[in-house]
Amino acid sequence: MIETQGLGKIYGRGLYALRGLNLTIDKGEFVFLTGPSGAGKSTLLRLLLLQETPTEGEVIVAGRNLSRLSRHEVQAYRRTVGFVFQDFKLIPTKTVFENVSFALRVLGTAVEQQRRRTYQVLKWVGLQHRLNSFPEELSGGEQQRVAIARALVNEPQLVLADEPTGNLDPDLSLEIMNLFREINAGGTTVVVATHDRELIKWVGRRVVQLEHGQLAGLAEAPK
C-alpha cells in the first residue's frame, strides 16, 4: 500500500526531518509510527498527505508516485485518504453533521447519499445524538470521534492519524484506538503516529520506530 524509497525531507538550512527512509506498509495493515518529538513521525504523515513534498526519494501509495501527481491528481488522491489530527481540525461554525457531511458535500455527492452516509458513520462512532451540536459543545473525545467519522465518511483506502489521542485522557484514548482497530478490521490501512507506548502495547500492532528522521527499528508490539 505504502512504499518509501530513500525518502528525505530537509527544512531550512539543511536540517533533516527525514533521511533515507525505506519503508513498506502492506494493504490492510495497522502500523504505529513512534519515536520521540522531532523523530519525523508528523513529517512522514504530511508527506503521505501531500501537505509537503519530499526533498529526496519517493513515496508510492497504492501504486501512485506522489511526487509525480498534478495539482488535480493530488486532490483526487486525497479523496482516497482519511486523516485525523491531534487538534481535531473541525470547523467551529459547522455542526457535527455538517463537519462530517462536508467531506462528501465538496465532492458533489448527492444530498440523500450525504445524509445517509453521514448518519451511518456518526452512529458508528456513537454520536448520532449530537448531530446538531457545534464542536465547542463537545468533549475532546467526542470531537475526536467526529474527526474520525469525517475521515471515514468517504470510505478511504488509507487512514492517517497524527497523535490522535494526544489531547485525550487514557480511557478516551483506548476508546479512540478501538475505533481505529475496527476501521482496520474492515480492511482499511491505518497508520497512527503516537509516542504513547502504553497505547501501542495495548493495541499490539507493528511498530515503526523513528529517531532523528531515520528508521531506528521495526517491531511487532506485544499484545
Binding site: 495539482r71 493530488v74 486532490q75 488522491y77 486525497r78 462536508f102 467531506a103 465532492l107 468517504n154
Partner: peptide, 11 residues
C-alpha cells in the same frame, strides 16, 4: 480551506 484541501475538494 485547509480541511477542504485535505479532503481533496475540487478547486
Amino acid at each position: 480551506i485547509d480541511i477542504m484541501q485535505l479532503v481533496g475538494a475540487p478547486f
